[in-house]
Design a binder for these strands. Structure first.
Lengths: 156, 156
DNA sequence: TTATTCGTTTAGAACATTCTAAACGGAGAT
DNA sequence: ATCTCCGTTTAGAATGTTCTAAACGAATAA
């Protein structure tokens, strides 16, 4: 049993892709639907077209909005909020990767610093100490490299 | 109540980091323990030190081995398998990112191609058609860029 | 041979995530 | 005012993941 419409197929595709990247399926389906649809859609449209509850659609719309992946636009003659997709997929992804990584790397650096602080009081093996120092170094260099990510991505 | 030993603290750190990257905690804890420990450890050592079941340790050791993150080494005087960490964290991560992404991007490209094949029979809006074409393009460029990832990472 | 040691596999318990359906509250409309 | 429309929030159902404990089988020891 094939689905018949392009938005159906495309949002299915986007949902599966999102899942494989450990986002959730709904986020992918919604973004995919808005990405492929010619005109902005309301919450009820989305919920109906994707056969998902309004509640779920609502939550994931807000998530997508917080990522800058969609924006709400007003449609004349309707009281409903309507949404359209930001078509700059690359930009969205670069931003998310950068934010996600920098948050985690910061936390990692903090934890490693705390570890090294307490390390002397624990008569640690110098070789082990060196491993931690080098790891902290890698984290720092990665953090700095992250700031150049947009420049790197510009070549895509 | 603080934990007292460095391996304890370090494997806790690694476990949390792994979770935040949507691996599982055990994989992180095990790799962290082996990374920080001076000598190779057996399955029972790991299971005891991390207070996790042998079964769980076994499964996640095999996972780590398949990633090239650890290797088994023989220890004289013991019948048990012993494991030590590959200390090249950067290399491990680069390899995993590359493999993970290229697999997914390939699938995405395949799906998008199937979509475009069937698209004519569905009298699609030319603007929508262009969006799909550009997306397919982005995927292709990203796949090619992935091959250069090791070179890029070398600057870290 | 039987007994012991070791790693893997299994069933299902514990936990976490994602989703639905329904209740809710605010903002017009009547 | 009440009624309707709309989006959010909520409780908990459905699903998915990760872990434990115990059974198992292969290999060695006795």
């Amino acid at each position: 049993m094939d689905s018949l419409t392009l938005p159906d197929d495309f949002s299915r595709f986007a949902g599966e892709l999102a899942e494989s990247f450990s986002f959730n399926r709904s986020v992918g389906q919604i973004y995919g639907l808005l990405f492929i649809h010619a005109s902005p859609l309301s919450l009820d449209d989305i919920s109906a077209m994707l056969k998902m509850s309004k509640g779920n659609a609502s939550i994931n719309l807000r998530t997508l909005e917080s990522w800058g992946a969609i924006r709400s636009v007003s449609v004349s003659g309707s009281r409903r909020d309507h949404y359209e997709a930001n078509q700059d997929v690359k930009g969205i992804l670069v931003r998310r990767v950068r934010e996600g990584l920098s948050r985690r790397l910061e936390m990692a650096e903090t934890s490693l610093s705390k570890l090294s602080e307490h390390i002397d009081s624990r008569r640690a093996d110098p070789a082990v100490l060196k491993r931690i120092k080098e790891l902290k170094n890698l984290v720092q260099r990665s953090r700095r490299a992250l700031n150049h990510l947009p420049k790197i991505a510009a070549f895509l």
